[in-house]
Design a protein around this nucleic acid. Structure first.
Length: 420
RNA sequence: GUGGCUGUAGUUCAGUUGGUAGAGCACAGGAUUGUGGCUCCUGGCGUCGUGGGUUCAAAUCCCAUCAGCCACCCCA
């Protein structure tokens, strides 16, 4: 026997019987983005590794231990994209785009240990609004995220926002944290000892009880914001209030990507388990310039479809209807088979989803197939029908049927469609 | 990268102190030779995740490995 192959770790197949669910999530996202006048952008699944190292940050976990890096045949270093913002900004710069409101959907890749809501290849939806620093845009982007979740029927999520300020306030705050934690270095866990030097903000997130004790009284980020950032944050909040969007300010939100400035936010669903972030985002006012473009502010968010599905299942929400044929043809005998092929073709070209099973032998098993297909209508074509140039139309829901002249088929189908 | 639990038919799982495998669902056919859904009947040799070890004998015990789930971590 030949080798049986297995799907790579941390990946999954979307099987045909489930694909309409993902399609539904994508359709609703597109419709929501249309409402806000955002346009889709599609970028490659891989980019220069360097792009992510510089933007996401080479001290971040994503770059340090989760990125799929490879060389091509000419020794160029590439990475499977671990996130969507850097590629979109790269395209924005490369194509000389002006003020842009963009959305995207697609696979992202991170080498991580799989668990509930976490995969190595996962699918994200996201938006980026580049070119405006107006605080309304912050609120609009957040509003769109909330709008999308509500359009799916979700309710049990909460929005948390924060501001991490610009580079100046970030430096001041990092210094304050270092000063605060320094006297307690010996009491911190190993991870936190490293964090103290590299990224003191992460200390606030530590789950180790002995470290948590200190987090409670640690300096608060908002106290170190420069006046401009603080004012901006206030405005974002008031726009959210005007839009009727509920939120809580959580000064401890720490986003794991280095390019974030000012507004940062997350939408969480606590019923999801350990991976409870439905989506997250924030401003990145220095990123465009850093990637080589003319200085321009930006803000965006990204979320994972997998977690959306978990949350929707948990709440028993609908993913729309599973596709099925409207008409299923049942043929008896060779002459009927040719008729069936022709009628099927005609119905399909008339825009009516139609099918039949050419493999099935007995009448009975064809009827079973018709039933299983979910079709509303079965059209039976047997020897009698061929001889008399008629068709038997059966309403599968009611169980009623009628034999009609073959050329009345379209109007009869129309009638039954109207009823259902 | 670390830890815990698990790995038997397409699927969900059972398998008693080691004696080389079973059920529900699904699927297929039939009861009803031109009528589905309900009911009943019939149909399962499946590398017992993989490799090695202990034993007269391993799905069952031991080791390794791979995979899944959950948690740490990180985040979507």
């Amino acid at each position: 026997m030949s080798q049986r192959y297995k799907i790579p770790r941390g990946t999954y197949d979307i099987l045909p019987q489930d694909s309409y669910r993902r399609q539904f999530l994508m359709d609703v996202f597109r419709k929501t983005a249309d409402l806000y006048n955002y346009r889709e952008i599609v970028t490659p699944m891989f980019e220069s590794a360097d792009l992510f190292e510089r933007s996401v940050g080479d001290t971040s976990d994503i770059v340090q231990k989760e990125m799929y890096v490879f060389e091509d045949r000419k020794q160029r270093r590439f990475a499977l994209r671990p996130e969507g913002t850097a590629p979109v900004v790269r395209s924005y710069v490369e194509n000389g785009m002006q003020v842009s409101r963009l959305y995207y959907m697609g696979a992202m890749f991170r080498y991580d240990r799989p668990q509930k809501g976490r995969y190595r290849q996962f699918y994200q939806y996201g938006v980026e609004a580049i070119g405006s620093a107006h605080p309304y845009i912050d609120a609009e982007v957040i509003a769109m995220a909330v709008h999308y979740l509500e359009a799916l029927g979700l309710k049990d999520f909460r929005l948390e926002i924060n501001s991490v300020g610009g580079p100046a306030s970030a430096d001041a705050y990092n210094q304050a944290l270092k000063d605060y934690y320094k006297p307690h270095v010996d009491e911190l866990c190993g991870d936190c000892k490293n964090r103290l030097e590299k990224n003191p903000r992460r200390l606030l997130d530590c789950k180790v009880p002995s470290c948590k004790v200190f987090a409670k009284d640690a300096p608060v980020m908002l106290d170190y914001l420069d006046p401009e950032a603080l004012q901006c944050f206030e405005k974002v909040k008031s726009y959210l209030d005007e839009l009727g969007i509920e939120y809580t300010v959580n000064p401890q939100i720490v986003r794991g990507l280095d390019y974030y400035t000012d507004t940062a936010f997350e939408i969480l669903d606590d019923s999801l388990g350990a991976q409870n972030a439905l989506l997250g985002g924030g401003r990145y006012n220095g990123l465009v310039e850093q990637i080589g473009g003319k200085d321009a502010p930006g803000i965006g968010f990204a979320g994972g479809f997998e977690r959306l599905e978990l949350s929707m299942e948990k709440n028993g929400l609908s993913f729309g209807d599973e596709p099925h044929p409207e008409v299923f043809l049942v043929a008896m005998g060779e002459a009927a088979e040719i008729q069936t092929v022709k009628i099927c073709n005609r119905l399909r070209h008339a825009g009516i989803p139609t099918d039949f099973d050419i493999e099935k032998g007995s009448f009975k098993s064809q009827m079973k197939a018709a039933n299983k297909s979910g079709a509303d209508i079965a059209i039976i074509i047997g020897e009698d029908e061929v001889a008399n140039n008629t068709l038997t139309i059966k309403d599968m829901r009611q169980g009623t049927q009628e034999t009609i002249p073959a050329d009345e088929i379209n109007e009869r189908i129309e009638k039954i469609r109207e009823r259902s």
